[in-house]
Computed example of a mutant assay.
Amino acid sequence: MREAPPPEPSVPSIRDELEELRDELRQKALPGERLIETHRRLAGESLERRRRADLLERIAECLPINIFAKDSEHRYLLANRNVSKLAERESSEVIGKTDFDLAPEPAARAIRASDERLLARGGMLLEELELESAAGVKRHLLVGKTLVQSEQTEERVLIGFSIDITESKRVERELRDKIALIEQQRAVIRALSTPIIEVWDRVLTVPMLGALDSARAGAVMEDLLADVSRRGARFAILDLTGVEAMDTGTAAHLLKLVQAIRLLGAEGIITGVPPGGAKAMVGLGLDLGGITTLASLREGLWYCMKRMRAGAVA
């Protein structure tokens, strides 16, 4: 009788042994292989850092602003192309230099004073500086800066940016000048539309024309009271003969004006009240007994002359 052949090893058991052997080899990896792995990892991190640094450099060069960094001795550690243009130097001539090496002394003093303000207060400093180049060209800069600590040296580093706002300042100045001119023209127009005339010694008259609204009545009140006080007027005649329209709000302004004139020691007289104005005044429901109203400017002038003569005789 033949003997039975021995059983063949099962496939799963061989695979298990191979896995165990592979794990054992991993645990007994040579130091050189570990160094290679570490080198690859560090190389990958270094490549990522270089990629980020290159991206930041491109951003700094492409943006239309000045970007810079200075050490504790105010020497430039970093300056983008725009800073070099502002200093009228090559980039290599900016690094390691101070503002006193790169700019005229008045501009350098202004920049240094700005840096000192940041060092004294800390935080973030945002301000405007006016600097003059060696050629005498004045530039306005909006400057922002702060302090950070270097990871390598633990030194405080001043980093910042500046934006040339010279053109916007010029536009702003022109706009202010135009607004001032408009205000002057408006004052002239207002004076021409409601002139205050001294028709007799200490007798003022204000002939009003066109539509009379509350805003215009308020302006007349301000100007007339100032003239009454300045000239020591005794009478002030408000002639409404040429007024086309007047509402109750305007009528209230005129009545207040007459009362204010009385407080200054003068007498306010209203002449030539149009029908619409009379209706507006009556609609206020006020007692008009103490206010002198006459039909025309001529009557108003005669009234003032008689009162002055009577006072002189007395």
Rank of each mutant, 00 (worst) to 15 (best):
V243K: 10
I261G: 01
R109H: 13
T250M: 05
V258Y: 04
I197D: 00
P275C: 01
G32M: 08
R58L: 11
E130H: 07
L30M: 15
L288D: 04
A108R: 07
G144W: 03
V228P: 09
E24H: 09
M281Q: 03
F68W: 15
L288F: 08
A69F: 15
A103R: 12
K70D: 03
R231V: 01
P7T: 07
A4L: 12
A233L: 09
R2W: 08
V203C: 05
G160I: 02
D101L: 06
I163W: 02
M221H: 12
T194E: 00
E17Y: 14
L238N: 08
L238Y: 05
E19I: 13
I270W: 03
S168A: 06
R298E: 10
A79S: 10
I95Q: 11
P207E: 06
T241R: 06
S114M: 13
L204T: 11
I237M: 14
R112P: 06
L225N: 04
H253N: 12
S84Q: 08
R309E: 13
A312Y: 12
S84D: 08
P64V: 02
R49G: 01
L264R: 10
L129E: 10
L294Q: 03
G283I: 00
A215L: 14
T194Q: 04
A314K: 15
D101F: 00
I163Y: 02
F235W: 07
M208A: 06
M246S: 00
R234G: 02
G232N: 04
T205V: 14
K145E: 12
I261T: 09
R202V: 05
I197A: 00
A180Q: 15
G311W: 01
L301M: 13
L284M: 07
N82D: 12
P5M: 12
G289N: 15
L294P: 10
R230I: 01
E130F: 03
K28N: 02
G218W: 03
R170I: 03
K97Q: 09
L77G: 08
T146F: 05
E57P: 11
D227C: 08
A107K: 08
G276N: 13
E45Q: 11
T248M: 07
G123H: 07
K178Y: 15
D227W: 09
R234Q: 11
R202E: 07
K97P: 02
